[in-house]
């Protein structure tokens, strides 16, 4: 009963997988989006801290799958499937983040990256037939989130506005 919970930290442009007795946590989501994929039956989950909507805009030589919505989500799905034998049709998603940290009158694409990340995450999940059960997105505040694969509760903390569990 009283097993200690290990908190698995997920960095920016990173994803991690966790099982029972582990929580997944990522700190300070601004325009980034945190995507939790979980399987209720086997109590495993993955959390990605997605920074950019699409890998098409990558101009670099190195390529980090976990940075983009269109590559991080499929990579996480296949890792969950391979490691824990989850099947895609049992996966559900919870998402949080995608805020606009600074209010710009000039709505250039870079400045709107929060909403664009959310759109891209939703499109990718839809194409994989993974339903989003709850979301806590948009706004102008940063969020820290923590997910418990056993209860499938997602705790969202913002400064001055407190903590909610979704």
């Amino acid at each position: 009963m009283n097993k200690t919970i290990e908190v698995v930290q997920v960095g920016i442009a990173d994803y991690q997988i966790a099982k029972e007795h582990q929580h997944l946590r990522t700190v300070g989501l601004g325009s980034c989006v945190g995507v939790v994929l979980y399987d209720l039956h086997s109590h495993v989950a993955g959390l990605a801290h997605i920074m950019l909507p699409s890998s098409n805009i990558s101009k670099g030589s190195s390529f980090n799958l976990a940075k983009y919505a269109d590559t991080a989500i499929p990579a996480m799905v296949s890792e969950l499937n391979h490691t824990f034998n989850t099947t895609r049709n049992r996966l559900h998603a919870k998402i949080a983040g995608g805020a606009q940290m600074f209010q710009f009158s000039n709505q250039s694409d870079t400045m709107r990256v929060g909403p664009r990340n959310v759109e891209a995450v939703k499109e990718t999940l839809q194409s994989l037939n993974i339903p989003i059960l709850v979301e806590e997105i948009g706004g102008t505040n940063g969020r820290t989130i923590e997910f418990d694969p056993v209860t499938s509760k997602l705790t969202v903390r913002t400064i001055y506005k407190g903590t909610t569990t979704i």
């Binding site: 300070g28 325009s31 940290m101 505040n141």
Partner: peptide, 12 residues
């Protein structure tokens, strides 16, 4: 806001 949320905006 939190440092991480603020700075990530500058890293895009």
């Amino acid at each position: 806001d939190m440092v991480a949320a603020v700075l990530s905006h500058g890293l895009i």
